[in-house]
Nucleic acid binder design. Structure first.
Lengths: 203, 203
DNA sequence: TTGTCAATATGGACACTGTCTATTTACAAC
DNA sequence: GTTGTAAATAGACAGTGTCCATATTGACAA
């Protein structure tokens, strides 16, 4: 009804509000966590009315899902580009992969956490599924290439590694675990558990 | 102001509202997940005014923390009692322990999830810390008794197992993983990853 | 140039929520 | 009995997601 109350904009239509909203949401996510990412807060930061986002996102879930897709995509691209200059050693490739995931989680807690908050995201979103599958397939591929034991199915080893990585990051982010150097090997604990895993499972 | 609007109660004071609130909260948690556990919803179910719980719980975080303590305590007690009739074989003890944790998580998703929602709980609560430590110490104790490799610190193996268990349950609950039988060994996947872990790390 | 229509943006409204406040009730200790 | 305290009450406030009617814009057809 009222004409353009926002000083930062001289046109009624924003132009690329969808993108602007995602960026605003990301800033709020980084700063104050996912709980602070409300539609109204994002709209305020983007300088639009509280109901403008509804034109681009059905509800809060759709907004968070789009944000998650954005983050997954960036992560997958980074992994892909880092692997372009591929490490030679297959074990090092796995270590490199898991280190990327763990570092991402530890350095960007709010981003990492959002990626797995299925309760907040839209399970039926195709893009989200695609990005998640891409990440998982990459992990499974690397662990399979390095070779695993014969007692169990190949997927079992992939699931075991995936579980360990995700569980470790989750426990660290929740404050249930401290950053430590493994006193016997002198390596970081997050590297040690992966190394121990490879020691054990890799052929 | 108004005198006793609740038909289910004939005394102004409830008697043991604190306990009743925790039970109501648990029912709502089981039925609709933690998001549905609002102070007002719990109060409604307990048949008291929306602000009655404030006399027993500072805020929603305190309520959820008390609920988590309740659940942790019950879990720890069950584990302790199950271990009274202790399995003889040390490896079986570990398998028994992790199976209890994993089964608990898979059968009571909302309860399990709450236990690790540090963002919703009060980190500074002493009881909560105690219960969590009890659980972790039990796990670490069992994995240490079974014996682990020598390349890394003992805690590294405990953290690795803990991470794997927690990660597996988390992934399953989030729908990122399906219940499967390991086709090579014929055992459940959740048993297979633990068995593989023990194969590898245990001396 | 004009008209129409869909997309986009606006603000008001509603039912929730957590939390704060003042007030009432009940009980226990003096 | 009086008094004090714990435990309950209703009311209020700001914030939320979401729905709704309305206003604005730009593009495309006539």
């Amino acid at each position: 009804m009222g004409p353009m109350p926002d000083p930062k904009r001289d046109t009624y239509h924003h132009g690329d509000l969808r993108h602007a909203i995602i960026l605003s949401a990301l800033e709020i996510l980084d700063a104050d966590g996912v709980d602070a990412v409300s539609i109204r807060a994002v709209a305020r930061r983007a300088g639009v009315s509280h109901s403008a986002p509804a034109n681009h996102f059905r509800d809060r879930g759709a907004l968070l899902t789009a944000l998650a897709v954005h983050l997954f995509h960036a992560l997958n691209e980074k992994i892909e580009s880092d692997f372009a200059s591929a490490p030679s050693n297959l074990r090092e490739r796995v270590q490199s992969f898991t280190r990327m995931l763990i570092d991402f989680g530890l350095k960007q807690p709010n981003r990492y956490r959002l990626l797995w908050r299925r309760d907040l995201l839209d399970d039926t979103d195709g893009q989200l599924q695609t990005e998640m599958d891409t990440l998982y397939d990459r992990l499974a591929d690397e662990i399979h290439r390095v070779g695993v034991g014969k007692r169990f199915d190949r997927d079992t080893y992939a699931v075991a590694l995936w579980s360990m990585v995700h569980g470790y990051v989750s426990l660290r982010l929740d404050g249930n675990l401290e950053s430590r150097i493994d006193p016997r090997s002198g390596t970081k604990r997050q590297d040690a558990i992966i190394e121990a895993f490879l020691d054990a499972f890799a052929t």
